[in-house]
């Protein structure tokens, strides 16, 4: 019988704890705002993850991770008849392009990214179907949940901070006019450069994330780093309709009408104190 519920009542940490401690085998599906993630567990360990029914494909993951070149991907695709990830990975390994460890590490990183994002889900529905496993042609890993829960919880806290710092992904970015640090003198990661290359008041942060296939968490983290370094600043996107003024009672919107003479009297008085 499926375990069903809502994350509002039983959060992701508790769910993982349950799977971990009860050494469960089966598929956990989580859904929120049209997004769907399915995680597969065997004996309490994470073995496979899929987001929005989107199979990234092992070759695509290896290419994005820089483990395979575009030509190598094309060659393996041409040689593979069954088109299963398992077969493609075996061809890649047997041709000596990479090792089995490279494949597993890449898959593991991909699955973990899917899982860590779930720690930012405060709401949504979940359902656990016992004894359901991924198809036999899928490449699986074995990830211990204890460390995953610890890291996820840490990210959850980080996420809360990032959300406060960058509450609106529909804002754009622009380079600061007088950056505190010259951009040439700092070391940026590949992902940071990918974001930098799209910085333009016409691109919202959400669009930049989409172009770069980054999650909300990833883009927020990078933008937060760039903001903290004083390299960029948040601006309303160019061409966007002006935001309606905040709903503030009229009495609060304008400063009191005072004369220069009155302010000068205040200054004189404070100086004499």
């Amino acid at each position: 019988m499926a375990l069903k519920g809502r994350l509002e009542d039983f959060d992701i940490t508790k769910l993982f704890n349950l799977v971990h401690l009860a050494r469960k085998t089966g598929a956990l599906t989580l859904e929120r705002d049209g997004k769907k993630v399915t995680l597969y567990f065997k004996g309490g360990k994470l073995i496979y993850a899929i987001k929005d029914s989107e199979e990234k494909g092992i070759l695509n993951l290896l290419f994005r991770a820089g483990k395979l070149s575009r030509e190598q991907v094309r060659e393996i695709e041409a040689r593979s008849r069954l088109k299963s990830d398992k077969e493609k990975a075996l061809i890649a390994i047997s041709t000596g392009y990479l090792s089995k460890e490279d494949v597993l590490e890449c898959l593991q990183r991909h699955f973990l990214e899917i899982v860590y994002e779930l720690f930012t889900w405060q709401t949504g529905a979940f359902s656990f179907e016992p004894d359901v496993l991924p198809d036999g042609d899928k490449l699986t890993v074995s990830i211990d949940l204890a460390n995953l829960i610890l890291e996820g919880t840490r990210r959850q806290k980080e996420w809360e901070i990032l959300q406060e710092e960058i509450p609106d992904l529909d804002m754009a970015l622009k380079f600061t006019e007088n950056p505190r640090t010259a951009i040439r003198n700092i070391s940026l990661t590949v992902d940071e450069w990918r974001v930098i290359s799209y910085i333009n008041p016409q691109n919202t942060i959400r669009q930049i994330a989409r172009y770069n296939s980054m999650s909300d968490y990833q883009i927020r983290k990078i933008v937060y780093g760039l903001l903290s370094a004083g390299l960029v600043e948040l601006v309303p996107p160019a061409g966007a309709p002006k935001a309606p003024p905040p709903e503030i009672p009229p009495a609060l919107q304008a400063p009191p009408k005072v004369s220069k003479g009155l302010v000068q009297r205040l200054i004189d008085r404070i100086k004499r104190l």
Binding site: V258, S259, K260, V263, Q264, L266, I267, I270, K271
Partner: peptide, 21 residues
């Protein structure tokens, strides 16, 4: 420190004056 507090208030009032001017 009273002088320090005065300085903060004065800086604020100078700013108000500047804007009025």
């Amino acid at each position: 420190n009273k002088e320090s507090v005065k300085r903060v208030l004065l800086e604020l009032l100078y700013l108000v004056l500047e804007i009025l001017e």
